[in-house]
């Protein structure tokens, strides 16, 4: 039994998975700042409107993890934007997020050297994304 992707329930599950991870706190101890994931509308795949997801990370702790509006999302320190299909590939570990970014399949607004410097934290958070069961809207 999974949780529906890109919903508040899914964000709660994601946050819980991060907090439960035994390595996360140590790996992310230097990370400061919020991250937004923007999933572009794709009505054919069950995403009628663009979805904005806000995540707050601070030195190994996790704050707000919410579905939000565009304004809140765009005020995050890092904003990652991509097609639904790409996010799904990333969550399923079919596409590495760094490769997606370099290939232009994801776009990022924010301090790129900071991300490079903290690539272990980024990889860890994305790894965790694939650790809980998700129901994808185009597979319902």
């Amino acid at each position: 039994m999974g949780v529906p992707a890109l919903t508040q329930e899914w964000m709660d599950a994601y946050k819980a998975a991060i907090l439960a991870d035994p390595e996360y706190k140590q790996i992310a101890k230097d990370w400061e700042g919020s991250v937004s994931l923007v999933v572009l509308a794709d009505p054919d795949k069950g995403i009628p409107e663009t979805v904005y997801l806000f995540q707050d990370y601070w030195h190994g702790d996790v704050g707000d993890f919410v579905v939000c509006d565009k304004e809140k999302a765009e005020n995050a320190k890092f904003v990652m934007t991509g097609d639904y299909s790409r996010w799904k590939q990333i969550a399923r570990k079919e596409l590495d997020a760094t490769k997606a970014l370099l290939q232009g399949k994801l776009k990022m607004k924010g301090d790129l050297p900071y991300v490079v410097r903290n690539i272990k934290t980024v990889n860890k958070v994305i790894d965790i994304l694939g650790t809980f069961d998700t129901i994808w809207p185009d597979e319902v």
């Binding site: 760094t98 970014l101 370099l102 232009g104 776009k107 990022m108 790129l112 050297p113 490079v116 410097r117 690539i119 272990k120 990889n123």
Partner: peptide, 23 residues
């Protein structure tokens, strides 16, 4: 202008690979 690779090279030079490659 649209390339993250170009942005990374501009900001960090080819040594941007050091952090990524270590992983």
């Amino acid at each position: 202008k649209d390339s993250a690779l170009a942005e990374g090279l501009h900001m960090m030079g080819s040594d941007a690979n050091m952090d990524l490659g270590m992983v």
